[in-house]
Design a protein around this nucleic acid. Structure first.
Lengths: 351, 351
DNA sequence: ATTAGCACTCTGAGGTTGAGAGTGCTAACG
DNA sequence: CGTTAGCACTCTCAACCTCAGAGTGCTAAT
């Protein structure tokens, strides 16, 4: 936080510049500021203030004799003040009406996790016109409700894994054709009795223990069960839900195709996104990354507004907007905030 | 087919123009043609020929005193000749080496349908630099292998539907909490004995029949089973696999962002794509749609090269490339052809 | 039928200009 | 002392011009 290093007048001028520039991507001149935002000063005074703001790196000029444009640090100051206000005022920008409707919609489809997250990202992107991303609850952290095996085509079996969070994963794998469906059922029963209620990543480490133990004991059924479970657990690829790339192309900031390409590549490379968002997920509430604060090279020059959603107190996943640094932070923040809260509440209700 | 309406000389000139323009998106002049492709004629003669080709609508000039550019009809003539040759020569452009490797790769992952199709589209787009699209086997046409129900959280059940094609769909729905797992098992057993081996869309219409019948008979269990199956069958949304949008952005044809946006929107709207590709799927082998031949408005100005893949003789789905009309048709055709054949073969092997 | 030659057309890059916007500085002001 | 009017200065951007280069169509000669 770098708050309060500006006196009231300066910060008001900064806000004016930021807001005007967010509104229309044109350098903001002193004359314009005096006219549009009626401070009690002449343009000359504003000019002096703006020169000061430039000196401390909050504004910059594209060239001499153009107006000013906020720098990343300028946006940062602006956003920090916003977030400060936000705590008091809460998400006032989103109509309660909308929230209710959206909650209802989620309620209807909460049983279908991936459907629900498609809905979330597409709503978020369509109301914001930025690219929206959601990470569903992490599979590893989900708790096992039950696992089942179904014999398939003689020498295959399908593992179906259900978690308390409603995540369903399935996987086909080869088995010894001698193994009967009853065997599979017994294996499943054993595994369920042993592991249900634990988080999947806990289970994974428990398995490693067991494997050693059972190897010593040579219990055939159990060691086979553990083996199969091991296979079934390797549901590694995490889903990432993305929406709104095409809408974002309408933004003047993306008139240059190369930026879109960067963004689109970064999104395709899920690891990058997951890593980025994971980094944001440790903090409470809404977090904002501006331009070059962004650790991912491809995404410097873009801003990310993200919030975790929680079931009770446990953070489950993250919902984010990616847009140009010239982003409507105030709107974006409250949208992400509200939507994340709706999603969290939906998970709570599920119980 | 509009073949053979050109004499040999004219068509050779047309090919020259098309190929040169595909190679580099610059209007092709008579001088260039004479130099690069050594016909026995001077530029003046070529000019006359080109004027003729323009008259019948195979070439056009961006402006007086620019070179010529192929029209959609010009491309059509070119592609038709290609396809004619193709029948004899077959897909010679793709190295056999690559095909073998790719087949092996598919073989490894054939159990995971969606993984397999991601692989297919991403390879196809990366070797072609166009946008690649694949429709997996249609769920409705797939034959039911078995259905299972798992009780979940007291008042829910999960339906798991397996087809012979390896498609796995699952769906959570509410049930009367009084229904026990054993009841679900009995229901599943009944449904499997009754409906396994039929295509899902057949089953759907069979169900409608049964519902009437059973209503009269008041067999509680069976009518409940049918009801549940009805619910479970509504796995409507079809998957569409897409890859390569970002690579395609590198093409000079897409330097204008609005075209990419159109394409990206059309892709997001899955119905459009499915409808388009369905239309192409009735014919044998590779089919090509050029520019304004395309029925979808958003995609006029783009070309589609598509081929069905078949299990045995039954067409299952479709694989396509979308690119600018200035597309390397010869390469695209053989790539789509080869890949579709690989995919088909993989499905055959599965049996 | 083919071709050399030539007048003609059109584009696109490069250069010039002038209006407009905005600045920084200075000197005057309350 | 902070504020402001005034002014000279800077920079951009759109409009305009020019001209070389590429390519054409036509005609007359082969």
């Amino acid at each position: 936080m770098i708050l309060n290093i500006l006196d009231d007048r300066s910060s008001r001028v900064l806000y004016a510049v930021v807001e005007s520039y967010i509104n229309k991507p044109e350098p903001v001149g002193s004359r314009f500021v005096t006219k549009k935002y009626s401070f009690g000063f002449s343009s000359a005074t504003i000019r002096n203030i703006m020169a000061d703001l430039e000196e401390i790196g909050f504004l910059s000029q594209p060239h001499t004799s153009a107006g000013r444009v906020p720098t990343d640090r300028g946006y940062r100051y602006y956003v920090d003040s916003l977030l400060n206000l936000e705590k008091a005022i809460s998400s006032s920008e989103m109509p309660r009406e909308f929230m209710n409707q959206f909650s209802k919609r989620l309620e209807q489809i909460k049983d279908d996790i991936s459907g629900m997250f498609s809905e979330v990202t597409s709503t978020l992107s369509s109301i914001s016109n930025y690219v929206s991303i959601a990470l569903p609850p992490k599979t590893e952290k989900a708790t096992l409700n039950r696992i089942n095996f179904i014999k398939y085509k003689g020498d295959h079996a399908v593992a179906i894994l259900l978690t308390d969070e409603g995540i369903i994963k399935n996987r086909i794998f080869k088995i010894d054709p001698m193994v009967k469906q009853e065997d599979l059922n017994r294996i499943a029963d054993y595994l369920n009795s042993e592991y249900a209620g634990y988080a999947l990543d806990e289970i994974r480490s428990m398995l490693i223990q067991s494997m050693k133990r059972e190897k010593a004991q040579w219990d055939k059924l159990i060691s086979r069960a553990i083996n199969i479970f091991e296979q079934a657990l390797s549901f590694t690829e995490e889903d990432v839900f993305v929406s709104g790339l095409d809408d974002a192309m309408n933004l003047p900031d993306f008139s240059d195709i190369s930026k879109i390409r960067e963004l689109s590549k970064a999104i395709k490379d899920k690891h990058v996104i997951i890593k980025l968002l994971d980094e944001l997920s440790d903090a409470e509430g809404v977090r904002v990354m501006i331009g070059n604060e962004n650790p991912v090279n491809e995404l410097k020059g873009l801003s990310v507004v993200a919030s975790t959603y929680k079931e009770g107190n446990r953070p489950m996943g993250i919902i984010a907007l990616i847009g140009p640094t010239r982003m409507n932070y105030s709107k974006a923040i409250s949208m992400v905030d509200v939507i994340a809260k709706c999603v969290g509440r939906t998970f709570d209700d599920r119980k």
